[in-house]
Amino acid sequence: MRNYIINSIFFLSIITIIVSCQNQETIDLQNYMSNGKDIYKAKCQNCHGENGEGLGQLAPPLTDSVFLKANKTRLACFIKNGANETLVIHGKEYKEKMPAFPELADIDVAQVMVFVTNSFGNKQGFVPYTKVSKDLQNCK
């Protein structure tokens, strides 16, 4: 009986630890999402639109999940350094230059990136800013 109680307490605490770990990531995600939304409104929305719909052929929409996934490690570079190449999004070519946002710190880039990749119909999960920092060091 005693063994049984000890065992169940042990397993319960393990489960609690796992659950709370997941919770930490959920909390981080929520944090990133809410801060990222503010940054998006201030820096991105005027061209990419309130719902990520883009603007004609001038600014591409942010709703192409396939593009976002394929370019996962480059997204941070686009956000911080801008883009000056032809990008194919939803099968259409976009050639306009995207401006750089050098004023954004790594954490800001991470937050706005997590917001974009988890809004407008995208659902690509959480990326910690340490990973984004690494991506930013490898920008071409």
């Binding site: 929305q45 005027n46 061209c47 603007l55 600014a59 401006p99």
Partner: peptide, 13 residues
Amino acid sequence: CTTICPTMHRNLM
């Protein structure tokens, strides 16, 4: 212009 013009012309559209 990357600041207010895109919004202006999006609305004017």
